[in-house]
Design a protein around this nucleic acid. Structure first.
Lengths: 219, 219
DNA sequence: TAGATTGTTAATCGATTAACAATC
DNA sequence: TAGATTGTTAATCGATTAACAATC
């Protein structure tokens, strides 16, 4: 498949956004689009859009722009969405359940093949047609199933020990909802973090910074 | 309270991480820490840490370092966590329910005062001691309650119309889990996005980029 | 005091924007 | 062909890192 080298993080993080906007154009039946039009719609500069896309290839045509359909396909391919990586979910609490039921894994290059928890009340129940398995049976499960990635929806304290087990089993790609920094312990892993607490605090900062009046200092 | 000017986005996004690590040191009973020690622990350079902190003030002491406790307090204050912004949740589906039950709003500067949905099956039920209210009654609710922020846990298609209503009610701070770009429609709002789909696609890209062998191209 | 570590300025590095020749 | 818009190079801007004087 592909192997792109030295693509910077900001570029990679913009790809899903391109994909989303192109998908919308596609739904609307738009067939062609210029970097200028995308710029107006998305809020990036036209220059940046062309620069970004050219990291992966010349998908446009001078004087014409880009074909919405083929650019959409290309970016999907660049993102690797045509894969079907097998993922297991660790933690079937509120958050884990929401992630399992809410996400369209198949459209994002993944397939959910297992859910684990250590709570007896949860073990045996079904989420999305997948039976919640005892976390103790993780190793047994992995003997007959090869997971490519793990999703962490467990409390911070439980995370490092589970990570150690997964790492030992050769599972080194993580989607991490836990408030623990996995990248501290290992350097041969791929982690994408969703730190909800951090995100909420950032919102808090921005509200405070916008609202707070310097005069209040006097009170 | 505070009003910091021209603080760049990368700096703001690192603040919660500092807060988290300092909290851990505090729990361990560590009383002092140098930028060098923090650097080893967190993976930022010592230089960057000092640079970041000095955007807000000189919290350290030459030859000594930083007091863990007071730096923790300072960053909490900078983030505005001592506020109690009133937030309403829009959407009581799996994701909304998970967000409502999973987050410690009080520790992050917020208080959840209302939950709304348009599904009759959900209206009247309780989440976290808050009764789910009919979305149609949003305006009525806001006559007697002043919300500072709204949390979007509704499908993409429903988002723009609800945003319009909230904006009209003067609620302009959003924590957005919807796959819709609110910042496109308004420029007087504050939005913090949690785009789970984007996050999962970024993980997919990284896995693909690391695993794919150029030789596969031949097959 | 001597050693350590900050606060801050200066140097480097990388990412974004501007410009324009190539070309459809 | 003329007009439009790309791909790509060069210029600018901003963020990170290095260095070091100030000082606890």
């Amino acid at each position: 498949m592909h192997k792109y080298k030295n693509i910077s993080d900001p570029v990679i993080r913009r790809l899903p956004r391109y994909y989303r906007f192109l998908g919308e154009l596609l739904d609307k039946g738009v067939t062609r689009v210029s970097s200028r039009q995308l710029s107006d719609k998305m809020g990036f500069t036209a220059s940046q859009i062309r620069q970004d896309l050219n990291c992966f290839g010349g998908f446009g045509q001078q004087g014409y722009g880009y074909s919405v359909e083929s650019l959409y396909q290309e970016i999907g391919h660049i993102l690797g969405l045509d894969h079907s990586y097998k993922a297991i979910l660790i933690g079937a609490g509120n958050l884990g359940k929401a992630v399992a039921t809410h996400m369209s894994f198949e459209k994002r290059g993944f397939r959910l093949i297992g859910i684990f928890d250590n709570d007896p009340a949860k073990i045996g129940t079904s989420i999305r047609d997948i039976t919640v398995t005892d976390l103790d049976d993780l190793e047994k499960f992995c003997e007959s199933n090869t997971a490519d990635a793990a999703i962490f929806c467990v409390p911070k304290t439980a995370t490092p020990r589970i990570a150690e087990r997964l790492h030992k089993l050769g599972i080194k790609n993580y989607w991490n909802f836990s408030h623990y920094d996995l990248s501290i312990d290992y350097d041969d892993i791929i982690v994408e973090n969703v730190h909800l607490n951090d995100s909420l605090m950032i919102l808090c900062y921005r509200i405070s910074d916008a609202n707070d009046n310097p005069d209040e200092e006097l009170q």
